[in-house]
C-alpha cells in the first residue's frame, strides 16, 4: 500500500465524520425527545419521593416497593413467567430452526411460513382467539370431548399458563429467525467431519452446534426478554388476577390504586431489569466487534 492512498483514506475519514453525525441525527434526536428525555424525567421523579409534603432526593419509593408483599410477589412472578416463556421458546424453536437449517425438504417452506405467521397477528386478536380456543368450553375442549370422550380438560385461561401460552405464541417468529441465522453460520464441513469420525446426532448438537450458536441464543434471549417483561395485553386478558405480571400491575397501580409514584417506580424497576439484559446483549456485541477488528 502506497503512502498516497493512506492519506487519501485518512482524509475521507475526517471528512465523513460530520456527515455521519448528520446522517444519524434525525432518528437519534427523535429517540432522545420521545424516549430518553421522558424516561429520565420519570427516573428522577421516582428518586424524589414526597415526604411530609415536600419532594426531596431519597430511596423511599424503592424501599416501599421491596417491602410490599404484593409488589415483590408480582416481580418474582414476572421474572418466573419470563424465564418459563423463554425456556419454552427455545424448546419449541430450536428443533424448528435445526430442521430448517439442515433439511432440503419442501415441507420446510410451509414450516417457515407457519413460524412467521404470528408476526401478523396483534396481541389483542391473539388474546381473543385464544379465549375461544383454549378457554372454557372452547374449540379445543369440545374437540377433545367429541373425539375422545375425555372430560378432564382444564383450561389455562385466567391462569399463569394462559399468559405464558399467549406470549410464547407471539415470540416464535423472532426466535426462529434469530436461531436460524445463527445456525446458518455453522459450517457444513465441520458437521460432516464430526459425522465421519462417528459422532451421533446428539453429540454433534451438544458438542459442535450448541457452542457455535451461543451468541444467537443470547440475542434471542435478550429480544424476548425485552418484549415479555413489560407485556400488557396478553397477561391482562389471559392471565390470573393475582399474581400479576408487571405490565397489568403498573396500570392497576396507576389507575385504580391511584398511586402514580408507585406505578412509576414499578416502571423504572422493569426498565432496570431490561437494561441489565440489554447490557448483556451490548457486551456480547462489543466483543464481537473486537473479534472482527
Amino acid at each position: 500500500m502506497s503512502t498516497s492512498t493512506l492519506t487519501k483514506k485518512e482524509q475521507s475519514r475526517t471528512k465523513s465524520n460530520w456527515i455521519a453525525y448528520l446522517l444519524i441525527s434525525a432518528p437519534f434526536f427523535l429517540m432522545v425527545l420521545l424516549i430518553v428525555y421522558p424516561a429520565s424525567l420519570s427516573i428522577i421523579r421516582t428518586l424524589r419521593p414526597e415526604v411530609n409534603g415536600t419532594r426531596r432526593f431519597g430511596l423511599e419509593n424503592y424501599l416501599a416497593f421491596f417491602s410490599d408483599h404484593t409488589s415483590v410477589t408480582n416481580l418474582v412472578f414476572t421474572l418466573w413467567s419470563t424465564g418459563a416463556i423463554i425456556a419454552l421458546l427455545f424448546i419449541i424453536c430450536l428443533p424448528i430452526a435445526l430442521y430448517l437449517r439442515f433439511t432440503e425438504s419442501r415441507i420446510a417452506h410451509f414450516v417457515q411460513g407457519l413460524a412467521l405467521f404470528p408476526l401478523f397477528v396483534p396481541g389483542i386478536i391473539l388474546a381473543y382467539a385464544l379465549i375461544r380456543f383454549i378457554g372454557p368450553n372452547g374449540l379445543l375442549e369440545t374437540f377433545i370431548e367429541v373425539t375422545t370422550g375425555w372430560q378432564g380438560y382444564h383450561t389455562p385461561y385466567l391462569k399463569p399458563s394462559g399468559s405464558i401460552i399467549g406470549l410464547v405464541w407471539e415470540g416464535i417468529p423472532i426466535t426462529v429467525l434469530v436461531l436460524t441465522a445463527g445456525l446458518a453460520q455453522v459450517p457444513d464441513n465441520l458437521i460432516e467431519a464430526a459425522r465421519d469420525v462417528g459422532a451421533g446426532r446428539l453429540q454433534i448438537f451438544f458438542q459442535i452446534i450448541l457452542p457455535l450458536i451461543g451468541r444467537s441464543m443470547l440475542i434471542a434471549f435478550a429480544l424476548n426478554f425485552l418484549g415479555v417483561i413489560g407485556a400488557f395485553t396478553l397477561p391482562y386478558l389471559l392471565g390470573p388476577a393475582a399474581p400479576q405480571m408487571m405490565g397489568p400491575f403498573m396500570q392497576r397501580t396507576f389507575y385504580n390504586v391511584l398511586n402514580p409514584d408507585a406505578a412509576e417506580t414499578q416502571a423504572v424497576i422493569t426498565f432496570l431489569l431490561s437494561s441489565f439484559v440489554g447490557f448483556l446483549y451490548v457486551r456480547s456485541a462489543v466483543r464481537q466487534q473486537k473479534e472482527e477488528a
Binding site: 465524520n17 429517540m31 400488557f232 396507576f254
Partner: peptide
Amino acid sequence: LKFRGSQFFLLSFLATNAFPRFGL
C-alpha cells in the same frame, strides 16, 4: 463511515424498546 462513538449510538437505539411505554 467511521466516526467516534458509532457503536454507542448504534446500541443506544435499544433504549426505544427497554422502557415501559406506559411510564412515558
